[in-house]
Lab assay of single mutants.
Amino acid sequence: MIVFVRFNSSHGFPVEVDSDTSIFQLKEVVAKRQGVPADQLRVIFAGKELRNDWTVQNCDLDQQSIVHIVQRPWRKGQEMNATGGDDPRNAAGGCEREPQSLTRVDLSSSVLPGDSVGLAVILHTDSRKDSPPAGSPAGRSIYNSFYVYCKGPCQRVQPGKLRVQCSTCRQATLTLTQGPSCWDDVLIPNRMSGECQSPHCPGTSAEFFFKCGAHPTSDKETSVALHLIATNSRNITCITCTDVRSPVLVFQCNSRHVICLDCFHLYCVTRLNDRQFVHDPQLGYSLPCVAGCPNSLIKELHHFRILGEEQYNRYQQYGAEECVLQMGGVLCPRPGCGAGLLPEPDQRKVTCEGGNGLGCGFAFCRECKEAYHEGECSAVFEASGTTTQAYRVDERAAEQARWEAASKETIKKTTKPCPRCHVPVEKNGGCMHMKCPQPQCRLEWCWNCGCEWNRVCMGDHWFDV
Rank of each mutant, 00 (worst) to 15 (best):
Q347V: 13
L112N: 13
F146L: 04
D185H: 03
R420Y: 15
K369L: 08
V3H: 03
S233N: 14
E322T: 05
A206C: 05
I298K: 00
R402W: 03
P247H: 06
R256G: 06
Y267G: 01
E98N: 11
W183Q: 00
C436H: 01
F209M: 13
G194E: 02
N295K: 09
W74R: 12
P419T: 04
R366V: 11
G47D: 04
C352F: 02
T204R: 08
A120I: 03
N190H: 12
P439Q: 10
V250G: 02
S223N: 07
A92P: 12
V465I: 15
R191M: 10
W54H: 07
S10V: 04
P137L: 11
E16S: 09
H257E: 00
Q100I: 08
G213D: 08
R191N: 07
G114S: 13
P132C: 10
T173Q: 09
E376K: 13
S233H: 12
G292D: 07
G160T: 00
S223W: 03
R33G: 04
V117K: 15
S127N: 13
R305W: 06
D39Q: 08
T242W: 11
E96G: 11
N254Q: 14
H302K: 10
G118F: 03
W403P: 02
Q78C: 14
G203D: 02
F364Y: 05
S141W: 06
R97G: 14
S296E: 01
G93T: 14
S65F: 03
F264V: 02
L443C: 05
C212G: 01
T21M: 15
R275Y: 01
Q64S: 14
D115G: 07
K413Q: 13
G118E: 12
L112S: 14
R366A: 10
V380W: 08
L102M: 11
E404K: 09
V121Q: 15
V67Y: 02
R89S: 13
S65N: 06
D460E: 05
I69N: 00
R348V: 07
E300Q: 08
S167Q: 09
H303D: 00
L176D: 02
V324A: 10
T125E: 14
P417G: 10
G135T: 13
L342Q: 08
G336F: 10
S10D: 06
H279P: 09
W462P: 15
E195I: 12
N90V: 14
I239H: 02
P335H: 06
V250Q: 04
T168F: 07
V67A: 00
T175V: 13
C421M: 00
N448W: 04
Q317E: 11
N428R: 15
P113T: 13
P333W: 02
C368I: 02
D87E: 14
G361T: 06
M432T: 06
W462E: 01
L226H: 02
M327D: 11
C238T: 01
A230Q: 13
A214M: 10
W447V: 04
L341H: 11
G338Y: 08
D20S: 10
C150Y: 00
L266W: 05
T231E: 11
F208P: 02
L228D: 04
A401S: 09
A401Q: 03
L266K: 04
D184C: 03
A320C: 06
R33D: 04
S246R: 04
